[in-house]
């Protein structure tokens, strides 16, 4: 296999991992204010993601690093094109990361409510922005023959991309709710998570299907039969997860929403292939694995490193989830 193709696949894998893993902790963060007003309840909700959210976020940082190493032109064009969007995302992630750490450091209600607010916005905003970004990547952006972005912040916002933002937010919120149903122990919180899942789920299905349909018809996504098929399977999986939730199988629902998110990511990258960013000015200006890649020498070194390290990372991250497999109860709040 060509190394550039391998790296396209690896970046797909990294984003897939990122959206599945960080998807549920964005979801949990977004749902935090709606789960309960009681501080112990909120601490239990946060405790479900506390040991893992930082490791989940590294999937995004690694995807960024991998783009830089393997497709430097994509890294350069994408990050400078999404300038103000990324600025908002960084502010959100800064607030969120610090809030997780500082929230427990003071007992006062205003201190905790303030940081809960930061966790909410810090989870809500990136979820939307990722949806906008993914829609823009396939929908195309004004990128010129020098690979330089010719638009501004408002070119990033189209009806299609805004729909993408809403769909990502709702799907992640649902994903977070189903995660909570398998990680919490207290009955009243479980009931709350289920009732939220049942409400958000309907909206998420509608947004998912509308966004999928808009993507297939409004962009050249539909030209790839394989991508369209994968996306359809993802939609079916998502709906199946929702109906499993109605039958009180949180685990089935979480597995299905993970599969739906993963398959959606794979579908988008399949439709993009061999492109990574589409130019709306001229298809020839699109950034592809051919014109945006690093040298074979760099790619071969990075391939060895990735083949060695990614399995190890998966092993020890899996170990974390194994250690923290027990449902979170009031007893876990003693410490920290």
């Amino acid at each position: 296999m060509e190394l550039t193709v391998f790296w396209f696949i690896l970046i797909t894998v990294l984003f897939t991992g990122f959206f599945i893993l960080e998807g549920f902790d964005y979801g949990v963060g977004t749902l935090l204010p709606f789960m309960s007003d009681d501080d112990s309840d909120r601490r239990m909700v946060l405790r479900t993601i506390a040991p893992v959210w930082d490791g989940n976020e590294v999937w995004m940082i690694t995807a960024g690093g991998a783009l830089f190493a393997a497709f430097p032109h994509v890294y350069a064009t994408m990050f400078s094109a999404f300038y103000l969007a990324l600025f908002l995302m960084l502010l959100a992630l800064i607030l969120r990361g610090v809030a997780f750490e500082l929230r427990s450091r003071h007992e006062s209600a205003s201190w905790r409510k303030g940081f809960d607010c930061a966790i909410f916005f810090g989870s809500f905003l990136p979820a939307i922005l990722w949806g906008v970004a993914v829609a823009d990547l396939i929908g195309g952006l004004p990128i010129n023959d020098k690979m330089i972005y010719e638009g501004n912040f408002f070119n990033l916002l189209t009806p299609h991309s805004v729909l993408g933002g809403i769909a990502f937010l709702l799907v992640f919120a649902y994903h977070g709710a189903s995660f909570l149903t398998i990680r919490l122990k207290e009955q009243h919180l479980l009931d709350k998570a289920k009732s939220i899942a049942n409400k958000v789920g309907v909206a998420a299905i509608v947004a998912f299907v509308l966004f999928g349909a808009a993507t297939v018809t409004m962009t050249d996504f539909g030209e790839s039969a394989l991508a369209t098929l994968i996306l359809a399977v993802a939609a079916v999986a998502f709906v199946a997860g929702f109906s499993a939730m109605r039958k009180n199988c949180g685990k089935c629902s979480f597995i299905m929403s993970s599969a739906a998110i993963g398959l959606t990511t794979v579908a988008f990258f399949t439709a993009l292939f061999p492109r990574l960013m589409v130019s709306s000015l001229n298809p020839a200006f699109s950034l592809t694995i051919f014109n945006a890649a690093s040298t074979d020498y760099t790619l071969s070194i990075m391939t060895k490193a990735a083949l060695l390290l990614v399995p190890i990372v998966l092993l020890y991250q899996g170990f974390t989830y194994y250690i923290f497999r027990k449902r979170v109860s009031r007893e876990d709040l003693g410490e920290h």
């Binding site: 040991p51 490791g55 590294v58 690694t62 830089f68 190493a69 393997a70 040298t295 390290l309 990372v313």
Partner: peptide
């Protein structure tokens, strides 16, 4: 510089960021 500069950044994420963030959580 991406062909050169990206490699240590990606390696930093793969070897160090995952390690410290995952085990700090544990």
């Amino acid at each position: 510089m991406g062909d050169i500069f990206g490699a240590p950044l990606a390696l930093e994420a793969l070897t160090a960021f995952f390690l410290e963030s995952t085990f700090l959580g544990i």
